[in-house]
Amino acid sequence: MKNSHSLLLFVVLVAGLALVPVLGSRALVQDLFMVLCLLVLALNWNMLAGFAGLVSVGQQAFVGIGGYAMFAAVILGGLDPLAGVLIGGVVAMVLSVPVAFFAFRLNGAYFAIGTWAVADIARLGFGQWKALGGGTGTSLPKGAARDMIGADAVKEMLGISAAAATDAMTYWLALALVAVMMLASWLFLRSRMGLGLQAVRDNPVAARSVGVDPLRLKALVFLLTAFGTGICGGLIFIQIGRISPDAAFSLLDWTAFVIFIVVIGGIGTLPGPVIGVLVFYGLEQLLADYGTVYLIVLGCLGIAIMLFARRGLWGAFIERTGFDPLPLGHAAPRPGA
């Protein structure tokens, strides 16, 4: 399959998903919104762990920071929630600089623990912010989300309630974020820097000796994924409408599930997170009535895949079939071509 075919399929899928708020129920829109947000987080985490070798267990820090920055922009700054989302991304990226400064001194498992500790410090720190409700958190002012730029137009256009229009807006933004993240990841990985990053992942010492600066590339990915994760955090908490330190900095919701999604889907592959999030959502729907059994099944599936298909479902698929519709590689030029 040529790249143009992949791109066409991608556009058709995105366009199809964009129609959900027009045709589907509000519950479905809300469900899929969460799925899309998890996918954004998964794409970001996959870039970090799968391509830059930065196995962070603290990405919930940037979800929380993004969420809190958005709340601060709306409640304290009186800004539009959408501006707040952007501010959330920027603040997360700015704060990722000092985090990187400390965490990059650590390697492997120590890096994972270090990022986790940072995220917990952030959770406790934001719990001290009295203007945003301290430890118990706070809600978005009534109507803030409904008065969001564009929400009125959506309401008129689709003839739906203001609340449904807000859901549709956040859904489309999440979808746009997924599309942008996927395209940006693909372009980045196929670029000179992406090639260097893959070399660093394979062998940092050899990479340095051919002129690749591992620290610079890793820092760049860390900063950019903090931005993506922060934006996603802002968006999630517009939809939820309420924030508290425990919800915003939840290891389980924003990192553990995300790691599960990437690992079962295929770490270090671009389609991996998409496959992973589909499996995750499918299982959630299938086992919704069984309570905690759901988590047990999820855990067992994760273990099985780590044991028997180390590169996840997508990795196993490529290995079996040799068919890779989204190659990140650079084919050698044919002689005479």
Partner: peptide, 21 residues
């Protein structure tokens, strides 16, 4: 110390694009 998951050609491409500028 090859870059295991890159092709032979890509191993050189990294070197040419970075070290070889």
């Amino acid at each position: 110390q090859p870059f295991d998951h890159l092709s032979v050609y890509e191993n050189l491409l990294v070197a040419a694009r970075f070290g070889g500028a």
